[in-house]
Write a protein that binds this DNA or RNA. Structure first.
Lengths: 287, 287
DNA sequence: CGAGGCCTTCCACTGAACGGAAGCCCAGAC
DNA sequence: GTCTGGGCTTCCGTTCAGTGGAAGGCCTCG
């Protein structure tokens, strides 16, 4: 297991990465000293490494002397499949959904024990909401999270439920039995619900994006887990969330279909070389 | 000057970064050998470094044995100001604009000698277009690029024009005199135009986002350069682009205003600690 | 004017990174 | 069947790049 992975890292690379990891939402700009402190590195070392990162434009240094994440790093990050494939494909459908409903529309994937928010659309007047593109929220307390968990590999689900669950609001369901029942219901119905379990006053509906979506329905509970989940969040006093299910399902299915299509024809309009497809040997995968 | 910056890099950090830089739009997934070749590193070295990056989840390794950019890197990238501030603020207005016009809406910043595309909205039916979020296009051949160049610091503009200019189509304006005139016109009118200069069959309109926008108009040509540019691309046979200028200007102004506001109140709803503001000493900025 | 931050530079020491080489696995050719 | 070739992984002795304490500069505040 990668128990301590990413924490210690005595190697140079590890130190450089620790430097990057010092940034987060609450600290998007850091002075050199802050950086060194947060990365737990001697000032001189932080200075040298940060300098190198800056030269490569992984970091930028503002006129206030603070370091920030650089455009180059941002650019590189956008090449991650989650953005270049998933977001790319899903965005137009999410826009349609937004226009039709005028509510917060979310797209998330499961990443470890979190729902990782890949995209989020919301107008000016929408509910102020905790989610953030690139942000993480617990799986059991969010609509998209439940949809992902409901469709996940049983083993993953077990492991998740074995851990202590956070309780953002008084309505968060943390009792194992009840949560399991809710997840089974969600899997059966094809959509998940949360009622003020993450934020007081907000309810959300979400559906899985992927093979589970529709076609593989009656037959197998053992179909591949969804790639993502699509969800909508509304103020709880606004009408019944069930109304939102049909358009959500339609959008999710359309996205899933396009994902399969784009997997076939490699990448539209780009010089692709289709390199030989090596097969995987064992070992080393989870060393 | 950072003449050779980012190319050589004999340091460990440099090698690791070279590994990252091996990925691009056309190569979003690489085998270890490809990675080593493209980064120009011995296989053993690439293996070790890629392994470390993978442990940190800056890279991920798919079931096909290929490396891809990891979610962790994507997450980090989203902390760059261009995304966490600019995109964040602009997106709702861009959505409005898209709904009102149903055309491709672009947001870009100047990054060195390129227009760097920060966000792009386009429905299913829009013009297939070369731009891509996180992608770069030449400043002189795109609408947003001209808007940025027109508002840029005169010295930057000079430097840009001194370099040889690419010519994506037969309509691209590369003659210095004519280009300068167009830029002056754009600055005066407050919007820039391109007609099939990047892509045959497409024309675009763009306006600067920033102080130049409106208020600082009559008085000074020497106002601060725009932070970004907002543009729309349409098929050239569709009606006159001038029609799009008013909504564009309105949106740009709204965005600029919100940018100033958010600069004042640090970050909505987050535990901010407002660390002491150190002042910058000389030296080292452009070493 | 001194104390306390923050940043930058220097340089002698050393242990971490290096990478050639050996070996494994798989696929396809013959 | 064997052989060739490509891709991946591991090993380990050498060496050179990274380290970080210390000194010094600049600034602000009391």
């Amino acid at each position: 297991m990668a128990a301590d992975a990413g924490q210690d890292a005595r190697s140079v690379t590890g130190r450089a990465l620790r430097l990057l990891a010092a940034f987060d939402v609450a600290h998007p700009a850091l002075t050199l000293s802050e950086l060194a402190r947060r990365a737990d590195l001697p000032l001189a070392t932080a200075h040298r490494l940060a300098g190198e990162l800056q030269a490569w434009r992984a970091l930028e240094r503002g006129s206030d002397g603070r370091f920030r994440i650089g455009n180059r790093l941002w650019e590189m990050g956008l090449l991650a499949p989650v953005s270049s494939r998933l977001r790319q494909v899903a965005l137009p459908f999410m826009q349609d959904l937004y226009e039709a409903t005028r509510e917060n529309v979310h797209l998330a994937v499961r990443d470890g024990c979190d729902a990782l928010y890949v995209e989020k659309l919301c107008g000016h007047r929408s509910v102020p909401i905790v989610s953030r593109v690139g942000g993480r929220l617990p799986l059991h307390a969010t609509g998209v999270g439940k949809a992902l968990l409901a469709g996940a590999d049983p083993q993953v689900r077990e492991d998740y439920l074995d851990r202590p669950l956070s309780r953002p609001t008084g309505f968060t369901v943390v009792e194992r039995g009840r949560l399991e029942r809710e997840l089974r219901d969600a899997a059966r119905r094809g959509y998940a619900l949360t009622r003020e379990e993450m934020t007081l006053g907000s309810v959300s509906v979400a559906v899985p994006v992927g093979p589970t979506g529709e076609e593989a329905e009656g037959s197998a509970a053992g179909s591949a887990p969804p790639e993502a989940a699509l969800g909508i969040v509304v103020r709880s006093h606004r009408a019944d969330p069930a109304r939102l299910v049909p358009p959500l399902k339609a959008a999710a299915q359309a996205i899933a279909r396009r994902l399969v299509e784009t997997a076939r024809d490699p990448a539209p309009g780009l010089d692709h070389e289709l390199p030989p497809m090596p097969v995987q040997r064992r070992g080393a995968r989870d060393a």
